[in-house]
């Protein structure tokens, strides 16, 4: 059901996947907090969700046969480099506190989506079993 809102679960299935992707990225940032020259990255949830829903267009408009739509050539628009608050001398842009806060935020949102899904599943079960 890619590209449409699932009638039962809404956007939560996609939201879970995006939060998981974001947490993986943030875990990478935290892991590289002491790596010289490492540049922290983060995911923009809104853009990523639009992409997942199929609304976000990352291709160029074409009106001639010879035009290229640029698909597959652009970097992921949802993926962005973090602007460091306190840049360090070795070129590392990881701010551990910021990353930890973002990770916590992402984990909480993941749990929120899980709760929504859980509620939906439970009410479905009630409807099926009638108990």
């Amino acid at each position: 059901m890619a590209g449409t809102v699932d009638p039962l679960f809404g956007i939560h299935a996609q939201a879970l996947q995006i939060q998981q992707r974001r947490m993986t990225l943030l875990a990478g940032n935290i892991a590289n907090a002491d790596t010289p020259g490492f540049q922290a990255r983060d995911l923009d949830f809104k853009t990523a969700l639009e992409q997942a829903m199929g609304n976000g267009s990352s291709t160029l408009n074409t009106d001639q046969a010879g035009h290229l739509d640029g698909a597959g050539t652009q970097a992921d628009p949802a993926l962005m480099y973090r602007v460091p608050l306190q840049p360090s001398v070795d070129g590392n842009t990881v701010d551990v506190q910021t990353e930890q806060a973002a990770f916590m935020d992402s984990a909480l949102r993941y749990q929120a989506s899980l709760s929504f899904l859980d509620g939906k599943l439970k009410s479905l079960l009630t409807a099926i079993t009638g108990e």
């Binding site: 551990v96 899980l114 859980d118």
Partner: peptide
């Protein structure tokens, strides 16, 4: 920090597994 990340990931994975 990494232990904390791992704990959170574990907890979320466990909660996902017990969904429903």
């Amino acid at each position: 920090s990494s232990v904390e990340v791992m704990n959170t990931a574990k907890e979320l994975a466990m909660r996902t597994l017990t969904l429903g």
